[in-house]
Design a protein around this nucleic acid. Sequence first.
DNA 1: CTGAAAGCGCTTACAG
DNA 2: CTGAAAGCGCTTACAG
Lengths: 341, 341
Amino acid sequence: MPPRSAHPRSTGRVTLADVAAIARVSPITVSRALRGERSVDPELVARVKAAADRLGYVPDPAARALASRHSTHVALLVPMLSNSLFVDLLEAVQGALRREGYQTLIGVTHYDAGEEEQLLREQLQHRPAGLLVTGLEQSEGTRALIHGSGLPCVHLMETSAAQGVYSVGFSQADAGAALTRHLLERGHRRIAFGAAQLDARTLQRLAGWRREMQAAGLHSPTLEWLNPAPSSLSLGRTMFEQMIAQSPPLDAIFFCNDDLAQGALLSALRLGISVPERIAIAGFNDLTGSDQMLPPLTTVRTPRAEIGAAAAVMLLGLMRGEVPPSACVDLGYEVVVRQSS
Amino acid sequence: MPPRSAHPRSTGRVTLADVAAIARVSPITVSRALRGERSVDPELVARVKAAADRLGYVPDPAARALASRHSTHVALLVPMLSNSLFVDLLEAVQGALRREGYQTLIGVTHYDAGEEEQLLREQLQHRPAGLLVTGLEQSEGTRALIHGSGLPCVHLMETSAAQGVYSVGFSQADAGAALTRHLLERGHRRIAFGAAQLDARTLQRLAGWRREMQAAGLHSPTLEWLNPAPSSLSLGRTMFEQMIAQSPPLDAIFFCNDDLAQGALLSALRLGISVPERIAIAGFNDLTGSDQMLPPLTTVRTPRAEIGAAAAVMLLGLMRGEVPPSACVDLGYEVVVRQSS
DNA sequence: CTGAAAGCGCTTACAG
DNA sequence: CTGAAAGCGCTTACAG
């Protein structure tokens, strides 16, 4: 079969015009029918869809983006994929968006506000139809870019009651407080907070821990072990080795992320320190392997897959111009008590 | 400042035409100058670049894609991000491509050939400028899509000597053989191979193990423990519990991936089975945490970040129409002997 | 080495 | 509810 068109620059692609010719309507009607604009005669819609199916027509994203000023891309900004939390988030987002014909543009910020801004700038050049951003704390520049773009934007992992801000997540502070209460109920008094990275969400968990410790009259600044280095198993080991030597001795450690807690657990095994008898250990996020540790790790299960999916659904609605039922969706968390506490 | 143009549909964006007006040349000359086409007077190039800088001009990817038939996207297909191996690969690819102005379109296939094909089909609609595909084994349909697209394509993680195939990786079979030799040299005889997922690369490692075991006259089908379920710590535990009960007893287990081996190590700890005295354990890929295990895990370090970066560089060259110095880049591997063997 | 014209494949904005 | 015209912002292909 020869190409449908003899134009020298024809790409061989099936175009709107081809569909229009078959359906015997104008190209613009095809465009409207296929995009589901109402105000097209249902009979024509059917004719157009049949023609499109027959020809295997697929809209050209570039042409669509150029004409409409919006691509079928959605920009997603996450801090770090080495934390599997964000892999789960990403997969859920990507799955939900893909079903609706959107491609996810992934930017990994490495917890760097400047890099986040630069990535967003680059992503905006592709004229995404919407934005998905981890957390609520952005640089001035990033905020200006988001606002200036006029694009719908949903924030992930935290919740915000602020006007005009869309968010899907849970209260990191409350989750931190809940785990702390669990440790207090177990009878632990000297409960340290071990944190790395020190990003916004970690600091909120810290605030939750502080709140409960102060309420119990047990807070002391010497119980706060804050390390700005990236979170990892080996950092957990290092921190544990320092913390276990503290005097008076600690009863328990609440690590801000499971990888630190896993490293601590392995270190305790190595040093012959019994957990939870000598010291209790708890983590956060319920990452892979935490249930396999020795002893299995007490932690907080966070619904990142659900957050990703719900945020994608909310964004999809916003991109269609709908008003979401709620601008702030709280998906909660769950304290998972295992043997390490 | 008012918008530069009174056109009702102007986007407010700085365009080629704006730069051309300032530089006092035609738009097509601006296009050529900025894309680095030679056959533009160096003096004009300088004038154009100065004008572009002054205006903060950024080319519109959609317009460029529509006119040129190629976007600034590169499609990347990986099996699974829950294996941190592919996160490392992805980050390296994305970093290298981003520096040259390309956006990475990530498709996660979940080790499913049908999903891989569907993802590629969707990605091709965005007219990527190049393709990066994990492994050499694709479905007929995927191969047809790759070939039919006419796009440059580089395969990752494995090496192929086939004509017209570009690949960056290492010999999975040789790496499997090397680790097996190490275990043999340690004096182990009954060395089992424990595998999950059973993807192409795992089976190549299996082949390497088999080769060495047969050469040593020690191979037996009963030493092959092959489980098609996804690789994970908990599966490693389950497999280990079965394998340790085998009789006559095993001397060593070579797991096809570190997560299985980590699960096995934790299981051994739980059961009070001493490693490597009672049984040696080795893994593959040197994933996060393997050096923190008890005992630290013997494994094979694989250069995935280097593979990602080198593949991106090769693809960048191919997209410029260059012929790469070598169509097949072997980046090797390294047996990392720790205490578990 | 440079440019005027045409075109990539859609959608917007305006009519009717 | 439907369409003819114009335009999105680039690059290709053809001249000179």
